[in-house]
Amino acid sequence: MSIETRGGPPVSRLLEQTTAFAVRTLQTLRRNGAVAFWAVAFPAMFYLLSVYLFIDTSGMPAEVVSAVKATNAVSYGTFAALTVFLNTFSQSLVADVEDGRYLQFRALPVSPAADFLGRFAAAYLFAVAAVLAVLGVGVATGAEFALRSAASIPVALLGLLALGLFAASIAVVLVAVVPDAKFASIVAVSVVMLAFFLTGYNGIQPGMLAGAADFVNVVPNALATRLAVHHLVAAGGWAQAGLAPPGAPTSAGHVALLAGYAVAGLALAVAATRRSLYGGEVR
């Protein structure tokens, strides 16, 4: 009888275990209709309501209308991604907690980092797919995208990665504090909605905020959205499009801030996974 031993250096074991969690998470996500609804259909529907009912485009030139639609598609794409990183991610964790699988995992030589990274990799792929679906709906309804440079797509993806790591770390902490599927979902969806509205639709309508709106270039959801809009949408004048003030978050400081969110999110998520899910006894 052959032995499929997967010993060897810790890095290869980490990769193997990360792959295990990633594959399993993708398999369970793609068979969950509720996840598809909340992560794709709901944001797409919200986008359609916005561009056809909430925003009066009748007096706008055609090129402005297509840019407004594109900007809104990016905003709702971020909404979809946040839903995946917060709600879907926390539901994936809490299902394993509620069904007692963390008892099993704690008795295995599993790296908590592999657990988080695997789940996150799957969530990131799923989030990218959800964003693309919403952008696709945008294109189908007349949104026009224009890449600012060859680096635009990688920059947008890295912005999404940073936002995802930050949001997923909140999801891990949420599950540690509220290890109940219903309550965790209520909290996660509430956070997504609050983040969306309190930042002026993920930072694309800073003018609707009562006070100074400079923070939309600071908070992660709005910062990632505005960076993506800058790189993916030919919005012309940002003030004309309602995106300013403040101006586009293109400085090195903004990029460093996003990187900081990513690093802090990763560190917090791995620490919380190790301490609460593997070191503790979330029940």
């Binding site: 997967r6 010993g7 060897g8 193997e16 275990q17 792959t19 295990a20 399993r24 398999q27 699988r101």
Partner: peptide, 24 residues
């Protein structure tokens, strides 16, 4: 403790085979 309803038996085995370094 090992089962996830939406996975098949083979997928479950594949998961644990990657998870444990001494899985045979």
């Amino acid at each position: 403790g090992a089962s996830v309803d939406t996975l098949s038996g083979r997928e479950t085995a594949a998961f644990y085979s990657r998870l444990h370094p001494d899985f045979t």
